[in-house]
């Protein structure tokens, strides 16, 4: 069981391409705009444009395409099942029936709904993965903190919330390694994780979950002591060694993203929803 192999979220591939060197705020904002636009896409054409854009980003950042997509692998079976699910179960009033089997009917609307929703999943996934692959956790934090500053004025503990997110991202890989050790240790004791029915499989999870959580909480206690010993106070009045600077490349890429977004909005508006 290689658990850590397919984790691409929270992994940073260091590089010195223009995408890597962009101000994190530019990248976060661009990703946010694209994700929001994705929610309104109801036809196929915008996805074509979208994939061209993402492909350009991948090329510019010199990330191996296979690596960027390998996080998708564990997701595919579920995606396929849900696609079939949509195909048979989504119904509208006036739609052509493609074929029917027993009590199920595959409708044209269901087919489109399944396709579009699966595409949205794929693009959401790729967009966020590209962001974390090209941006280190440190600059992601700085960018988020600076973007959320207006909310801090209202009284939200933005620094603390960003810190929480950072801890979460940082600990995913650490806990994954721990999980792998636990799973291997239990397998060495003769637990066959892939055999048995639903109940047996569930039961086998208990000897994995308990050590995982206990280990995680032990780490948490250690981290709390370490942070308190260093007088962490949520970063009020904290200064930065590297201040973020919005450069010319950022201006160009923001303009490019905005132009692309405008194009996307135009295509979304022009083509009415398919269902």
């Amino acid at each position: 069981m290689e658990l850590t192999k397919n984790i691409t979220l929270g992994v940073y591939l260091p590089g010195s391409t223009s995408i890597h060197r962009l101000d994190p705020r530019t990248k976060i904002l661009a990703a946010a705009i694209l994700i929001i636009l994705l929610l309104f896409v109801r036809t196929y054409e915008p996805y074509l444009l979208f994939s061209l854009f993402l492909f350009a980003v991948v090329l510019l950042s010199r990330i191996p395409v296979g690596y960027a997509l390998c996080g998708l692998k564990p997701m595919l079976p579920v995606l396929a099942i849900m696609w079939v699910f949509q195909l048979f179960l989504f119904k509208t009033e006036d739609t052509a029936v493609l074929f029917s089997w027993w009590i199920f009917e595959a409708t044209e609307a269901g087919l489109h709904m399944g396709n579009l929703i699966s595409l949205r999943v794929l693009f959401l996934f790729t967009t966020t993965t590209l962001l974390t692959l090209t941006t280190s956790v440190v600059s992601l934090t700085d960018g988020l903190e600076s973007l959320l500053k207006p909310l801090a004025k209202v009284g939200l503990p933005t620094q603390e919330l960003v810190m929480t997110l950072v801890i979460a991202l940082r600990f995913v890989l650490i806990l994954a390694e721990e999980l792998e050790k636990i799973v291997k240790a239990q397998m060495a004791r003769g637990v066959a994780f892939d055999r048995g029915n639903f109940l047996q499989k569930t039961k086998k999870l208990f000897p994995v979950f308990l050590p995982l959580f206990i280990g995680a909480f032990k780490r948490a206690e250690e981290l709390i002591v370490a942070m308190e010993a260093r007088s962490y106070t949520g970063g009020r009045g904290r200064t930065k060694m590297k201040t973020l600077r919005f450069g010319r490349v950022d201006l160009y890429s923001t303009l490019a993203t905005l132009a692309f977004s405008a194009l996307l909005v135009f295509t979304i508006l022009r083509s009415g929803p398919l269902y």
Binding site: L3, N6, I7, L9, G10, G71, P74, M75, V78, G155, L156, P157, E160, L161, M163, T164, L165, V166, I167, A168, L169, R170, F171, V172, I174, L175, A176, L179, F198, K201, T202, L205, V208, L212, F213, A216, F217, R219, A220, L223, I224, M227, E228, Y232, G234
Partner: peptide, 30 residues
Amino acid sequence: MNLSVRKIVISGILGAIVILLGVTRLGFIP
């Protein structure tokens, strides 16, 4: 509003477990 170090760290670690269970599909029981 203030968040104590304890709250920040515990939320973060629990968040990490959530993400971990999601990406490894361990959190899904067939």
